[in-house]
Amino acid sequence: MGGMFFPFISTGAINSLLFGIYGNHLRQLRKVCHSDYQREQLEYKNMFWAGSVAGFVQSFIACPMELIKVRFQTHCYYNDYLYGQRRTLFGTVKRILKNDGISGLYRGLLPMMCRDVLPYGIYMLAYRQSVDYLDNTEFVRRRRNHPDGSNVSLLVTTMAGAWAGVISWVCVIPFDVVKTLMQADENHKFRGIIHCVQVNYRAYGWRSIFRGSWMLVARAIPFNAATFLGYEYALECCHQYDTYV
């Protein structure tokens, strides 16, 4: 369970940053359109680019956080259980800065950007397209007209968020594995992405860069469903506040 507190407090901040940048950039892209028709025609494209820009920006914030989490969790295991030595979160950060300087916090940034930039565009696009598809199904249309049909929006958001998470993660599992291997490599055994892949391929075969795939996909379903439920709830609260004001 070591290292749970830090990702617990950092995940919310990263998601807030991600969706905040996404929403602001999407609004800017919509303003460029000269008519409602043009905005409607470019909506999916704008969502993809807004998601990609958000993924690019947040990777610079998330990379140090994920590196600290990986190092802390790794050394919690080796130090606590194997050597009986406990390393604190502050001690982990101090050790990284002492050995590698500020640049050490950005080890694994390139594979992380490969994991986050375009895939976050796919993530946002897949969610919106899934919502639009489900909204046009006969089941959802009938439930919306039902007196108890308020829960159908919850169902649509949950299913679309889960599907978007699965689609985006399936595309990036190798990059996430390489990113984690490079960030856990405190002794700098890997010189870069290609070298990391080559070393693991020679030692364990091509399956080495897909290790933990089923766990990542399984985690993506509830995590991303909850993420979009929170996102839609926040949007609804903001809309109600603007209406009230």
Score class of each variant (00 low, 15 high):
M1P: 11
M1G: 13
G2L: 08
F6N: 07
T11I: 02
G12Q: 00
A13R: 06
A13D: 04
I14D: 00
G20K: 09
I21K: 01
I21H: 03
N24Y: 12
Y37A: 15
Y37L: 14
Q38M: 13
Q41L: 15
K45V: 12
K45W: 06
N46H: 14
N46V: 08
M47R: 15
G51V: 01
A54M: 04
G55R: 09
S59I: 03
S59G: 06
F60H: 13
I61F: 07
P64A: 09
M65A: 11
I68M: 07
Q73H: 02
H75I: 04
Y78F: 08
N79H: 00
Y81M: 08
Y81C: 08
L82H: 09
Y83D: 11
R87G: 03
R87V: 12
T88W: 06
N99D: 09
I102Y: 15
S103C: 14
Y106M: 13
R107K: 14
G108H: 10
G108R: 12
L109I: 14
L109A: 04
M112W: 14
M113C: 13
C114M: 15
R115V: 05
R115S: 13
V117S: 01
V117L: 11
L118P: 07
L118W: 06
I122V: 15
Y123A: 07
V131C: 02
Y133F: 02
D135S: 00
D135N: 02
T137L: 07
R141T: 06
R144E: 04
N145L: 07
G149K: 06
G149E: 05
N151H: 02
S153I: 01
S153W: 01
L154E: 00
L154K: 00
T157A: 00
G161V: 03
W163F: 06
S168H: 03
V172F: 02
I173D: 08
I173L: 10
I173S: 09
F175D: 07
F175G: 04
D176L: 03
D176C: 06
D176Q: 10
V178P: 05
T180A: 14
T180C: 11
L181K: 14
E186V: 10
K189R: 15
Q198V: 07
N200M: 14
Y201Q: 11
R202S: 14
A203T: 15
Y204E: 14
S208I: 04
S208L: 05
L216T: 10
V217P: 04
I221P: 05
Y231P: 01
Y231S: 00
Y231D: 00
E232Q: 02
E236F: 03
C237R: 13
Q240D: 11
D242F: 07
T243D: 05
T243V: 02
Y244K: 13
